[in-house]
Structure formats: C-alpha cells, structure tokens
Simulated assay, not measured.
Amino acid sequence: MYSKILVAVDGSESATQALEEALRVATATGAELVVVHVIDNSYLRYEVGYVDLTDLRTSLVEGGQQLLDEAKARAAAAQVKCTTIMIDEPLALGDVSTAIEQAAEQAGAELLVVGTHGRRGVKRLLMGSVAEGLVRQCRLPVLLVHAPKPA
C-alpha cells in the first residue's frame, strides 16, 4: 500500500485532524510518516515601514518547531516512524501548496494528507485554499480531511 505518507500541519483544527488520519493510515499500512510545516512568509509582500520583523519571524519559526515536535510525539505514541521538515523559504511568498508538493516529492511520499477548512464562497475566494491548490496540481494521491463542524 503506502510506505511513506506526508502530512502538513499548521496548528489548525483541520490539520490536527489530518495528522490523526495520517497516523491511522500509517499504523494500518506500516508506513513512515513525514510531517511538514511551511512558514508562511507572505507577510514579506507588504511594506510595513520601519517595523522590525525579527520577533515575528522568530515567533513563526518557534511555533512551527513546536507543531513539528508535538506531531513527532504523537507519532511516537502511536509507534509510527516519523521525520519532520520545516520549510522556511522566503522566496515562496505564500505559495504554501507548491512548497508542500515539493517536500512530498523530495521525501518520496506516496500519499499526501492535508486538512481543509471547508471554506465556501467569498471566504474561499479571499483566503484561497492550500488544499485546493494541492488537489489541482499534485500528482500524488491527496487525502483531504475536513475540520469538525462547530457545535
């Protein structure tokens, strides 16, 4: 079946659900899990004047590392072999879906698991969708995991 599964995490509820689903598939197939987090450097597109972005950048990197560490701990608890990748490429400027696809190809993943927020209409138009970009452009099978509906 699958020997390597890549899952993208961003701290959202849908990404947490995607990680849980990827762990279930990895456990069932004996696959290795690769967890990726992309630092969204899209803030670099905007002129912010004389604001020092050092603290923001440090916070983004530290938060990303914490997400990866938590995912690795969950994989260890499930007895799933796991590696992590942090992508911090300022040149991508917000093209998160391409960065995830490239990481999947480089890691030799056979399945890509991502969460989707299920945005519709104007929200989707304004905010875009990493999941939609992956489904449209990725050559690998993509498993979309929806966030739970609010109570």
Results as ranks from 00 to 15, higher is better:
58 T>M: 15
84 T>M: 01
122 V>I: 10
115 G>P: 08
97 S>Q: 10
85 I>H: 02
124 R>H: 10
102 Q>L: 06
61 V>T: 11
99 A>P: 01
78 A>M: 08
117 H>W: 09
61 V>W: 05
64 G>D: 02
109 A>P: 01
117 H>N: 12
74 R>D: 15
130 V>H: 11
101 E>G: 11
72 K>S: 11
102 Q>R: 09
66 Q>G: 12
86 M>T: 05
88 D>A: 01
110 E>L: 03
91 L>F: 00
58 T>I: 15
100 I>M: 09
103 A>V: 02
86 M>E: 07
60 L>W: 10
109 A>N: 01
71 A>P: 02
68 L>D: 05
70 E>S: 13
94 G>I: 01
117 H>V: 11
106 Q>L: 08
48 V>A: 07
105 E>T: 07
49 G>A: 12
118 G>N: 07
104 A>S: 09
98 T>L: 09
67 L>M: 15
54 T>A: 15
137 Q>P: 00
84 T>A: 07
101 E>V: 06
125 L>W: 12
124 R>T: 07
136 R>P: 02
105 E>K: 00
57 R>I: 11
78 A>Q: 10
106 Q>C: 03
70 E>L: 11
129 S>W: 14
46 Y>C: 01
58 T>D: 15
110 E>W: 01
119 R>V: 08
85 I>L: 08
60 L>A: 09
137 Q>S: 12
46 Y>I: 03
99 A>Q: 10
99 A>F: 01
111 L>Q: 02
106 Q>W: 00
98 T>E: 11
137 Q>K: 08
59 S>Q: 12
123 K>Q: 11
91 L>I: 00
124 R>C: 08
115 G>L: 06
138 C>E: 08
87 I>F: 03
52 D>I: 13
67 L>H: 14
98 T>G: 13
141 P>M: 12
123 K>N: 08
42 S>R: 09
69 D>P: 04
81 K>R: 14
98 T>Q: 10
53 L>A: 14
106 Q>T: 04
118 G>D: 02
70 E>Q: 13
113 V>N: 04
106 Q>Y: 00
88 D>F: 00
66 Q>V: 09
136 R>A: 09
141 P>H: 04
66 Q>K: 14
123 K>R: 11
129 S>V: 10
53 L>Y: 12
68 L>F: 03
